[in-house]
Each structure stands twice: as structure tokens, then as C-alpha cells.
Design a protein around this nucleic acid. Structure first.
Lengths: 349, 349
DNA sequence: TCATTTTATGAAAGCCTTTTCATTAGTGGG
DNA sequence: CCCACTAATGAAAAGGCTTTCATAAAATGA
């Protein structure tokens, strides 16, 4: 079909051996300037480029890295992936994207596919905590994968999987949020959204617990609701909250999408943001600052996170020994969706 | 480094020849059930999976397709890419993503990289029109690429490049917009945003011209402004518009991001949307319906578009002869950002 | 039971590069 | 002018897999 032109063709046409052409191509060894010129001419003429598959086969290095992520549609991931791609390219690697849609089944299929494709390493943006049954096989699968190629977890982890981790300091971010709310005199705080069992939610929720306890704030379990990571989920959960007797004065969301959903629903019920309720997001996606009234959120340093993840992976690929865990600091960005509690007004429904 | 286990190891361990193992693997030929069982056992034991690089080399088919797109961060593309990935997977292909950031330089680099990686075909989401100089080399590059592997343009085209095209009926979408605005009694209409020279803008703008002319509406060239495809550009261009003596009553934006930017800026200047000015977007991204007051936009059928693009490419790869051009219908979705003109109030600034 | 067909398997070539090893040509020194 | 050494190049193997061709074994039929 695709009758490719090979190094032999070039060799023939320029009256040298394939070896010589190869030497010209790689530049590792010296060839007589004259022959080199001749060969280059022919290469130019046929627009020849060496088959990187054959090369990879020989070198046992594909110069490809796989990225498994939940959903490229989420700005957090698209942002991150873009930075990763750039960094990878800089280091001579191309990237393979795999949307798992948060389904562990897909994750393990992709793991296998990537292995088949001989990727040199895998960036895993996901990870789940053992809240779900039948997780063992995924753990086994992951561990098996890690025997074959290096894997770096990004903003996630997996119980019983001992992988390198590069992550945003989501805990610190959450502390900052609770500190802010505390300073804003909020005492009744909810935590909304996120798929149960996904590590990103778990990590934030743990930090939420910690931070609340640290401030001696009471945690109302009714206000801790799981769902998904999208706008619809935010809307849904906000409604659930509104049906309750008692309502929080501040809502911490697992991410900005959920926050958007919450804000919309509250507004539909004529609850003013931030006057009646403060809403906090996470990730500081592109839209956070544009969505009225501006979403108070935690900025992740996508550039650093993505770059560090790729660097770590590449170091592992090259047999180096990078830090086992690397944490990127976050920054709270206060915007219009949060505010000091007004005592003269209380909300109920 | 990565001491991979090969078909030879399996052959040894199960006391058969590599050929037999291969036969078991591919299932193309029959082997004695007993030997088959034995071999499968060993394969299982070592968790062996054949090296797809070696296979690709042999078959001259990598089962990979490359996707070159401007920017995965834009919801339109992430949406589309996700559908494409799914469809590709369904057809047995994996996808390579390449963010060109709308830079033709990057585009051609990626074209080469993909060729090197021996992709079986390329989906090109971009394309530019010859408004820019020095475009010839990119055209040449593209034509050269197309000699080696099939290329399908998605929602774009390139002058002097005779490729298969799968696209949304952006023209029809634009006609619908202008029809709507006409029915809403708008007579002063602007067109904002988009990088000059990028075909997507060009196509919409041409349709804009057509539709306006068709309704005998006067086109004010001052109101046709180019910029970029993001929110900031929308804000910027809206400001430019406001500085003008005369202001339109409706603004058609090249996409939803630009529309969001425009809406925000107008609101900052106390111009009410849609009461004072109607704003229309394009693409109907996930956020369009959530961003207050809800953005009137043109829905692209991402699923169809993505699937058809992949199908077309795969047909080309398999030597079939798919339609040279395939158009997916659009649908106008009217939301809060557009409204009938109120005669009792006119805007100026 | 022997000749003939079918079935099961092995050996080897090929896909496209790179690299080691060997060979030839070329250079300078004695 | 010859020897020893360097430079330039070619031949061949390797990398992991599939497939054609050939061979051995088993099954069929007379």
C-alpha cells in the first residue's frame, strides 16, 4: 500500500551502502564530506525520512509517552495535558492521549494498549482509593504495568501502588480555603461534588476534614455530598442542599465546574452570591475569573505541574532516581463568589 | 534497559517454534489444540503481549492516526477530539494529539513528526487561507504529506490543497444566525473575532457577507474586526466597538469564547444583554448554555463530525473512496443573549 | 500395507534501521 | 619504498514479529 522509500533506495541511488546512509542520517560517525553531500542530495530529492518504527524497534525506545486522563473535556485536564505535551516535545517525546472517562475498566484497557505500543513511560492522571470493591484487579494491573515501564501519578494516587507522584498541594489549597472562610466568619460549611472513590476528591475531602477540625468547626455530614465533577452535578447537589432544614453559609466545591453549577442553581432560587452564600471552587480554570461573579478558587500551577510530571517520568525512563513525591504549591485567588458573613441576614429554605 | 520478553522466550518455554507461537497469537492458522493450550499457558504466565512496533513494521500499518489541532484547551476541539478518539478506538486505531497553537510552523513540524511515527493517516483540524504570505511552503508541505498518507481536513480547508473534507455546515449556521437577527429586526450587525487567515473565520465571514447581502443589509466594515478566538479577544474587540461613533445592535462572534468576552465587556459598560445589544456565539460549547444570560449559538454535532472524519480517514487508509466532501448540518440554539430590537431605546456611546 | 492427502510444525526470509566488525584505501614516517 | 596506522566504507547481524515454503507426521483410501 504505502510503498515507503527506504534507506536502501537512497543507498542505491547514491552508490553507497545502507550503512553509510545511516551514518549520514544519525551523524554519529564520520563520512567523507563528499559522499555525505551526495547522500544528502538524494535524501533531499526523495524527501526521505527514516522510519522511526524501525528505529524504535532497534533502540527499544519508542520516544512516546502515554497519558491516561479522565476527560480531556475538563479544562483542568486539557490545560495540564497541553503543558505536558509541550514539555515532552521539548525532551524529544511525543504523547499518546487516552480518555478513560473515569472508568477503571477503560483505564486498564488503555494501560495495555500503551504497553503494546511500547511507550517508554506513562503519566497517569487519575487514581482511585479503595472505597470501591473489585479494585484489586486494577491495582494488580497497575503494578504489573509498572514492572514494564515507569509510571508517574499526577494529582492522584492508588492504594497499594507504590509509584512516583507529582501533585499539586491540594491539601494546602483546601487549608487556605477554610482559613479564608474562617476569616470571613463562616461557620457552616459544605463540601460538594466529586466522584466517590476518585482520589482527587478524597484528598480534598480529607484536607477539608483536617482544616475544619483544626478550626474547631463542626462538620455536618449532610453537607458532604458526592456526585460528579461537572456543572450538572453542581446544580443537582445544590438543590439537594436547599431541601435541607439547615443551610450552610459557604459551599466548598470539588472543582470550578461544580461551583458554577452551584452558583447557577442558588441564583435561580434567588439566593445571592456571595451575599447570602459564598461559593468556592478549585483548579482556577480559564473560566473561573470570567464567570460572574468571578469564582474564588485555588490556582494550580499547570505549567510547573505538567513540566515536573514529564521531567520525572523522563528521568525514570533514563534510569535516574527522581524524587519519589513532588508537590507544587497552590495559591488561593479570591474573587466575587466569596465574602464576609453579614450578620443581619440569614438564609433558610 | 527494558528487557522485553519476546515470542522466542515463549517458544522456548513451551517447546515450540516462534512460528507456532505467532500462529497462536494471530489465530490466522490452525495449531493443534493441545499445543495451543500449552502456548497460551506460557503466554499467560509471562503476561506476554506482542510488540506492536515489530508488528507495525512488518504490516506497514501502525494503526495510529495523527490529529493536528490548534489548541486542545478550546472546548470545541477537546469535545471533537474526544469523539474522534472514541471512534478511532472503535475502529482499532489509537490517536496522536498535536497542538499547533495555530502556528503554521508547528503544524508542519508535527506533520513531519507524524510521518516519522508512521501514522496511517492524519486528521487536520485547522487550515488556512492564502491571506498570509509565505504560505506556499506550507501548502507544499501539506501536499507532500498527502502523497505519503491520507489526510482529512476537518472544518477547514487550504487553498491549493485538494484534500478530503469533513465539516460542519458553518455557512448554513451563519445564515440561520442572520435570519434570526433579521427576524429580530436587527439591521446593524457586527462580526467579531477570529485570527485572520484561519479558514474557520474566513468561512464564517464569507457566509456572513452572503447572508447580509441576501437580506439587503448594509455591511459596515468598521464592525468587522479580527483578533483571536479567546475571551480576551472578545473583550478587546468589544471595547474597540464601543469607541466608535455608531454602534451595532447585534454582534455575531466567531465563537462562544469571543461571545463571552463581548458580553462581559458590554455589561461592564452597563450595556444590557440582550436588551441593548444581542450577542451571538458559535459552536455551542458546553458552557454556552450556562453562561448568563445563556448564549445564542450554533450547535455543531460533535459526535457526527468526529465520527465521520475518522470514518472517512479510515476508509481512505483502506483504499476505499469516500465522499470528497461531507457536510454535517448545524442547529441554531436561541438563548438569552439575543432578543427582538426594542424601538424605544437606542444605544450609543 | 502402501500411496496419497491433510495437518501440524519448523526454518528462514523479510520489514527498516543501526552498529559492530572487517576490509580497503589512503596517509605519514622511517 | 615499505610498514604501520588512520579514515572511510561495506557486510552482516540484531531487534520482534509474521508468513511462505518445506518437511515431518498423521490420517485417509484402496
Amino acid at each position: 500500500m504505502k510503498k515507503s522509500i527506504t534507506i536502501y533506495d537512497i543507498a542505491n541511488e547514491s552508490n553507497v551502502s545502507p550503512s553509510t546512509v545511516s551514518r549520514v542520517l544519525t551523524g554519529n560517525e564520520r563520512v567523507k564530506p563528499e559522499t555525505k553531500r551526495k547522500v544528502l542530495e538524494v535524501i533531499e530529492k526523495y524527501n526521505f525520512r527514516p522510519n522511526s518504527l524501525a528505529r524504535s524497534l532497534l533502540y527499544k525506545q519508542s520516544k512516546m509517552i502515554g497519558i491516561i486522563l479522565p476527560d480531556i473535556n475538563h479544562p483542568f485536564f486539557s490545560m495540564l495535558v497541553q503543558k505536558m505535551e509541550a514539555k515532552a516535545l521539548e525532551l524529544g517525546y511525543t504523547t499518546f492521549l487516552c480518555n478513560s472517562m473515569n472508568d477503571p475498566e477503560n483505564e486498564s484497557t488503555y494501560l495495555q494498549t500503551l504497553l503494546d505500543k511500547q511507550v517508554d513511560g506513562i503519566l497517569f492522571l487519575g487514581g482511585r482509593i479503595n472505597e470501591v470493591d473489585s479494585n484489586e484487579i486494577y491495582v494488580a494491573e497497575m503494578n504489573n504495568t509498572m514492572e514494564q515501564v515507569p509510571v508517574v501519578f499526577v494529582n492522584g494516587r492508588m492504594d497499594n501502588v507504590n509509584a512516583h507522584i507529582v501533585k499539586t498541594d491540594e491539601s494546602a489549597g483546601m487549608y487556605e480555603i477554610i482559613d479564608l472562610l474562617w476569616n470571613f466568619k463562616h461557620r457552616k460549611i459544605a463540601f460538594l461534588g466529586g466522584l466517590k472513590g476518585v482520589s482527587s476528591r478524597k484528598i480534598k475531602l480529607e484536607a477539608f476534614h483536617d482544616a475544619m477540625t483544626r478550626h474547631s468547626l463542626e462538620i455536618n455530614d449532610d453537607w458532604i455530598l458526592d456526585g460528579d465533577f461537572d456543572i450538572e452535578s453542581g446544580e443537582e447537589l445544590a438543590k439537594q442542599l436547599l431541601y435541607m432544614k439547615d443551610c450552610p453559609t459557604a459551599i466548598v466545591c470539588v472543582n470550578d465546574f461544580v461551583a458554577i453549577g452551584v452558583i447557577r442553581t442558588l441564583q435561580q432560587f434567588d439566593i445571592r452570591i456571595p451575599d447570602d452564600i459564598s461559593v468556592i471552587g478549585f483548579d482556577d480554570i480559564y473560566l473561573a475569573k470570567y464567570f460572574p461573579p468571578g469564582i474564588t478558587s485555588v490556582t494550580q500551577n499547570y505549567n510547573q505541574l505538567g513540566a515536573k510530571a514529564v521531567e520525572t517520568l523522563v528521568e525514570l525512563i533514563n534510569g535516574k532516581r527522581p524524587e519519589k513525591e513532588w508537590t507544587i504549591p497552590t495559591k488561593l485567588v479570591v474573587r466575587g463568589s466569596s465574602k464576609m458573613v453579614q450578620n443581619d441576614k440569614s438564609v433558610d429554605n
